[in-house]
C-alpha cells in the first residue's frame, strides 16, 4: 500500500509538471487527466475510496471534458501552439520559480517541523461522510447548492452571445 502511494505520488508530480510545461493545450489536458487519476489513486491509498471515485468522475471526467469542449469551440490552430512557445521563454520562469521554491521550502519546513507526526490510521467509510454531510454540515451542503445554481445562471448569462454586450472600458477603447 505504501509503495502504491509513493508511485502514484510520483506519477502525479511528473504528470503535473508536464501539464505545466507542454505547449499544446490538448496535450496538457491529457497529462492533467493522468495527474487527476494519480491523485485518485493517492486518495484510495489514504483510505478514501469514495473521494477517489468522485475525483475521477468530476475532475477527470466533467471538468476536463468541459474544457475540451471550449477548446473545440475556440477552434485553436497550430499557430496558437507556436505562440504558446514564444510566450514561455526561459526568462519568464525565473521570478515565479524562485518565489515558488521559497514558498515550497517554507511549506516543507512547516510540515516537517510539526511535532509527533503520525501516520494515516484508519479509512473513513463513505457512510460516515454521508452522515456528517447531512448532519452538522447541512448548511454547507445547502450553500454548495446555491453556489452551483449561481454557477449555472452565471455561465448561462455570460455564455449568451445573441446580443453584443460591450463593456464600457472596451467601448471607450474602441472610441479612442
Amino acid at each position: 500500500m505504501e509503495a502504491t502511494f509513493y508511485i502514484a505520488g510520483a506519477v502525479a508530480v511528473i504528470a503535473t509538471l508536464l501539464v505545466v510545461m507542454s505547449y499544446n493545450l490538448i496535450h496538457a489536458l491529457l497529462y492533467l487527466v493522468v495527474s487527476f487519476l494519480a491523485v485518485a489513486v493517492v486518495f484510495f491509498t489514504l483510505g478514501a475510496p469514495f473521494m477517489a471515485a468522485l475525483e475521477i468522475i468530476i475532475y477527470a471526467g466533467a471538468i476536463v471534458v468541459l474544457i475540451i469542449f471550449v477548446i473545440m469551440m475556440l477552434n485553436l490552430t497550430y499557430e496558437d501552439v507556436q505562440q504558446e512557445k514564444s510566450w514561455l521563454k526561459p526568462s519568464v520562469w525565473i521570478g515565479p520559480a524562485i518565489l515558488s521554491l521559497v514558498l515550497l521550502a517554507e511549506l516543507v519546513y512547516l510540515v516537517v517541523a510539526v511535532e509527533a507526526p503520525g501516520t494515516v490510521s484508519v479509512s473513513v467509510e463513505a457512510a460516515a461522510v454521508g452522515m456528517a454531510l447531512y448532519g452538522p454540515y447541512m448548511l454547507g451542503v445547502q450553500l454548495c447548492g446555491i453556489l452551483l445554481m449561481a454557477g449555472i445562471v452565471g455561465a448561462y448569462h455570460l455564455g449568451r452571445q445573441k446580443k453584443k454586450i460591450v463593456h464600457r472600458f472596451l467601448e471607450r477603447r474602441a472610441a479612442s
Binding site: P96, L99, S100, V102, L103, E106, L107, L110
Partner: peptide, 8 residues
C-alpha cells in the same frame, strides 16, 4: 504569492 510568503 509574495504576500503569502511574507505572512508565512
Amino acid at each position: 504569492v509574495v504576500g503569502a510568503i511574507m505572512i508565512l
